[in-house]
Amino acid sequence: MFAANIGVSLGLLVLSGAVVVTAQQLPRTLPGIAMGPGVLPLWAGLLMSLLAVSLLIQNIFFRSPSLKRRVFEPKELAAVGKMFFAISAYAAGIEYLGFGMATCIIVVYLSRYLGQYAWWRCLLFGLIMAGVSVGVFRYFLDLPLPTGWFGL
C-alpha cells in the first residue's frame, strides 16, 4: 500500500501539472464575461497537486504499520487484465460485428469462462440474451444500436 500510495501521488502530480499547463492556455477572461474557462481548471489543478504532495508527505513521514499489505498481486492483475480485454473486445465487437452478434459471443464466453457450464448451455444462454436484448432495445425501444458488417 505504501508504494502504491507513493505511486498515486506521483501520478496525480503529473496529471495536475498537465491540467495546470493546459489551463494556462485557456483564456482566463473574455470580453464581458468575468471568469473565463481557464480559471476553474487552474485552481482544480493546483488543489490536486497540493493533495498529491500531502499524500506523499503523509506516506513518507507518517508511515502507518498497516500499510505494509501488498495491493496488486500478479495473478490478480493478469485476471483483471483478461477481463478488461474481454470487455473492450465486446465494445469493439459491437461496432464491427453488430450489437446482437457481439452480445451473443460475450455472453457465451463469460458464462463458459466464469461458470464452466456445458457448451450447449452457454450457447443457448447467449442466444437467448442476445435475442431478448435486441428485441427489447432495438425493436421495442427503437434504439439505433450498431449493426456492424452483417447487419445483426
Binding site: P27, R28, L30, P31, G32
Partner: peptide
C-alpha cells in the same frame, strides 16, 4: 471588433 476569438 470585440476580439472574441483572441486567445487570452
Amino acid at each position: 471588433k470585440y476580439e472574441l476569438n483572441k486567445k487570452n
